[in-house]
């Protein structure tokens, strides 16, 4: 088996290296990816179209907004799937067998808990900064959501899961994830109601007291907030389910 695997791997490697000769060189300005009119348009006109300095955020939330929306849906579905896979039902519910051998109940460590108590508010503030400042500096919904989720995970790590579930229970997390997608889709539908197409944020300038470009700028922020809700909730739900094998009790 291992020999077959090695042979397959080496063969693939030779093929890939052979093909790599035809790829554009490192940093080539004329490579197909860089020379294509699409990428040139993204770089040249993002500022004109949306007034967002961070092109990645603009492409993510505006030009490719549809893609990102279903990306968020994928995360949501993954969270639900994990909960569904690990949930104990029926005869499984009271099967005690799966405690690891000699598992000890970890006491919350004094130093760790105090540090975490100090850090969690700062981390959440940083998450909001990353989320809200995502237009100007690196950041956005996904990153801010992950940092926010990490703050909850940190609480669960330092004390135990129930302490974190007091703040964000898994049920509420699933709801929050749904709310995030609703925010995203709601902004899209709202711009549809205003006469544009789905996720055509510029139409929001009819209700917001700003220009069409700035409407896209602000709608992107709203969309990112929706994404951040979903990512926060799903990250925490994944952690809670995976770390306790679906029992949702005890520490890691």
């Amino acid at each position: 088996m291992k020999k077959i695997a090695l042979a397959v791997t080496v063969l693939t490697g030779i093929l890939l290296l052979y093909a790599a000769q035809d790829f554009p060189a490192w940093g080539d300005l004329q490579s197909p990816a860089s020379a294509s009119p699409v990428s040139k348009h993204f770089i040249a006109d993002t500022g004109v179209d949306t007034e967002v300095p961070n092109m990645v955020t603009a492409v993510l939330a505006d030009y490719r907004g549809f893609d990102t929306m279903f990306e968020t849906v994928v995360i949501f579905i993954a969270g639900i799937a994990i909960i569904g896979i690990l949930r104990r039902t029926g005869a499984d519910a009271d099967a005690p067998a799966l405690k690891r051998e000699n598992e000890i109940a970890a006491e919350p460590d004094l130093i760790v808990t105090n540090t975490v108590r100090l850090l969690v508010p700062v981390i959440q503030l940083f998450a909001f900064y990353v989320l809200a400042h995502g237009h100007v500096s690196p950041g956005g919904g996904f990153q801010g959501g992950v940092i926010m989720g990490a703050s909850f995970i940190l609480v669960a790590l330092a004390w135990d899961l129930p302490k974190a579930m007091d703040r964000l229970s898994v049920d509420r997390a699933v709801m929050l994830a749904g709310v995030g997608i609703l925010i995203y889709a709601g902004i899209g539908l709202f711009s549809m109601l205003l006469g544009g197409e789905f996720l055509d944020y510029a139409e929001l300038s009819h209700v917001l007291p700003v220009s069409r470009e700035m409407a896209r700028y602000h709608a992107m922020l709203g969309v990112e907030i929706g994404v951040a809700f979903t990512v926060t909730a799903v990250m925490f739900a994944i952690y809670a389910n995976l770390s306790t094998r679906g029992r949702l009790e005890g520490g890691l």
Binding site: N102, E103, A106, V112, I147, I153, L154, A158
Partner: peptide, 22 residues
């Protein structure tokens, strides 16, 4: 952000190993 996630990761592994002694 990297420093933060690094802290979370190392803390997580430390807690995991603390829980699962033998």
């Amino acid at each position: 952000a990297y420093a933060l996630l690094n802290f979370v990761a190392s803390l997580a592994v430390a807690r995991y190993l603390n829980r699962t002694r033998s």
